[in-house]
């Protein structure tokens, strides 16, 4: 598969919590590059630093040192270079959660259309995009249903649609298949791969789910805050 532009560039990133005797080094000199069309997994035992790395790429957590560039834009170099990190996330990053985290008071379509709405799209354009994605993910017939009435698989597909609604080029997923059985987990990963290729996006997933390891282009192992191998 031909790989595209570099979408994530993490250089020499370190993150520690606390100081002195209580200091914990969550990440140490991590380098990672992810290109458009790539689907990678961050693996490692609990406390290895994979969620910390995901949070840094998602601009939720500031590194202690290093540089981070997203979609060709340097966003961290000793400090955040953009004041409005939420706008950065809205424009460039889509999140898929372990628990789908759909807003319970919105229908499936409204959950998806919320992202374009926040980005300032015209209402009808946001709705059309939501319908298009839900149809594509084969949950269009459930668009008027609230999350409580969706099955686990349906809810996860709606969450994927929401993550893609604003056409982000970076999709970060935290245990996206944890709530799904093996067959459905495979389907979700195939779907994400297809979308990554079609939208020229990259997907970074934190997972422990061995059943889907063969669906990734790369498995990035983290141990004690360092990259073990790639």
């Amino acid at each position: 598969m031909a790989l595209g532009d570099i979408l994530i560039e993490v250089s020499n990133v370190a993150k520690h919590f606390g100081e002195g005797e209580t200091r914990v080094d969550a990440l140490r000199a991590v380098d990672l590059t992810v290109r458009a069309g790539e689907v990678i997994a961050l693996l490692g035992p609990s406390g290895s630093g994979k969620t910390t790395l995901l949070n840094i790429i998602g601009c939720i957590l500031a590194p202690s040192a290093g540089r981070v560039a997203l979609d060709g834009e340097l966003v961290f170099d000793g400090k955040w270079l953009r004041r409005d990190l939420r706008r950065l996330r809205l424009d460039k990053i889509g999140f898929i959660f372990q628990a789908h985290n759909l807003l319970p008071f919105l229908t499936a379509q409204e959950n998806v259309a919320l992202v374009p709405d926040l980005a300032g799209w015209p209402t009808e354009a946001g709705r059309a995009r939501a319908r298009e994605l839900l149809d594509y993910l084969e949950v269009g017939h459930r668009r008027a249903v609230k999350p409580a009435l969706l099955s686990g698989g349906e809810a996860q597909r709606v969450a994927i649609a929401r993550a893609l609604a604003n056409r982000p080029r970076i999709i970060l997923a935290d245990e996206p298949t944890a709530a799904l059985d093996g067959a459905r987990a495979g389907l979700v990963m195939d779907l994400l791969r297809r979308l990554a290729v079609e939208q020229e996006a990259c997907i970074v997933t934190v997972t422990h789910d061995e059943k889907i390891f063969d669906r990734f282009d790369r498995l990035i192992h983290l141990r004690d805050g360092r990259l073990a191998d790639a």
């Binding site: 998602g58 939420r86 999140f95 992202v115």
Partner: peptide, 13 residues
């Protein structure tokens, strides 16, 4: 709060 955290994460101002 969890819904607010989600809103913040997806970029709600």
């Amino acid at each position: 709060l969890k819904q607010i955290a989600t809103l913040k994460l997806i970029g709600a101002p």
